[in-house]
Design a protein around this nucleic acid. Structure first.
Lengths: 224, 224
DNA sequence: CCAGATTATCTGTTATAACGAATATTGTTG
DNA sequence: CAACAATATTCGTTATAACAGATAATCTGG
């Protein structure tokens, strides 16, 4: 084999229909296009995405296995209802897990990494001004996972992503109002500060504050 | 409806073939009946359990979605190889998550709960003497999850179970030798002690020590 | 006897059909 | 008009067949 061809391997990666559907559902979930409690039938998903029952079923049940969708009595699948207990529990899990990721990331973060994260923060502030909520959510994702990526812990990252999706299905329903409070940006400032000082404890505290704030906002909304 | 019939609802809970197969694979994994790296074909699973491809595929891919099995290039599914990085990462995740569960459990644990856990510990010591490794593993599971259950955090519990399964596929390959070291029992003693004093910090420390010990044992085995 | 090409087999993917259970609809009756 | 029964429809489950790509086996030519 020519050495020039080394490392360009992934030529043939046509995704399976099942994962395609799953990813579609994932982003639809993150975009808040489903209402909490909404029932998702296999046939509806299949015909909406113009595939047969098989990949639709696979996608739906994979999300159930991940805990992102809930499964009801007779094999019915629906997007989880948002109740306070669940929100609080997920918040605690996220604080623990994202704290770990941040802590492990600190020694690995290069100056370039931090600069990139700061750049995302700048974009984020811009999107905050223009009230571009879809961009805001995506940039927020990039901001946080830009840090967690540096931990080099793929399994941990997957679990955290899963937690985000579990909250994400209704965090979006609420985001406009959450955005108007506008404290998220300030907390991100604290994150950047801790990052610059490579202060793991401060970083954890800042991330915890960020999670707790969005959680309390979510709880307030769930009450009425 | 007669009031005498209230609460006896779950009459009809015939599981689906898919979850049946998945559970079969789960316990086979926990029992260490598969070798790390072994390839699991859909048709092999299907014919072994005498079902069609559909439920076999569903079970396999649900386990992949949970991160318990790995998926290769062409949709192939295999049991994850044990490498040191993965072991260390899972160990860190477990320490964090099980620490959280233990901490949350402490205020909820009744005296009866603690007595039950102590009873399991007694059985565990018995199984340790008689070198009954299958029983030992099951009792170890009951011991730990007897604590975590009290946290009343279903999502957290599921994630921890998932982590156990991810390690479990090869922790069992090693258990006999691990059992001969016989320190696990002493560490469980520390857990019980902390439990009796309702000392959350000590409990976390004891659980951490337990995890770290089995991890270091696992690492030692993976090297030679 | 070995290398390369061809064939056969294996494996994952996907659509479809058939079955049964659950739900919704309609029709009927008091 | 209301309540019950019968029917129709929807839905999840599962097996099967057909297809394509990958792998293994066989065969042929040197």
């Amino acid at each position: 084999m020519s050495s020039a061809l080394v490392g360009i391997a992934p030529v043939d990666r046509k995704e399976t229909l099942g994962v395609l559907v799953r990813e579609k559902l994932r982003s639809a979930l993150m975009a808040g296009r489903f209402q909490p409690g909404e029932k998702l039938t296999i046939r509806a998903v299949a015909s909406a995405l113009d595939v047969s029952l098989t990949p639709a079923r696979e996608a739906l049940y994979n999300l159930v296995a991940e805990g992102i969708l809930d499964s009801g009595p007779n094999g019915t699948v629906f997007v989880p209802q948002m109740d306070e207990e669940r929100i609080v529990e997920l918040s605690k899990i996220r604080i623990t897990l994202e704290g770990l990721a941040a802590r492990e990331a600190v020694p690995n973060l290069t100056d370039a990494d931090i600069a990139a994260i700061a750049a995302i923060h700048a974009e984020l502030a811009e999107a905050d001004h223009t009230k571009d909520f879809p961009a805001l959510m995506q940039l927020n994702w990039q901001f946080h996972f830009g840090i967690y990526d540096a931990a080099n812990m793929p399994t941990l990252k997957r679990i955290i992503e899963s937690c985000w999706l579990k909250m994400g299905s209704y965090i979006n329903v609420i985001y406009p109002k959450y955005g108007e409070i506008g404290q998220g940006i300030e907390l991100h400032g604290r994150v950047l500060e801790a990052l610059a000082r490579r202060d793991a404890d401060a970083l954890c505290a800042a991330i915890r504050a960020d999670i707790e704030q969005s959680t309390s906002c979510l709880i307030a909304m769930s009450r009425g």
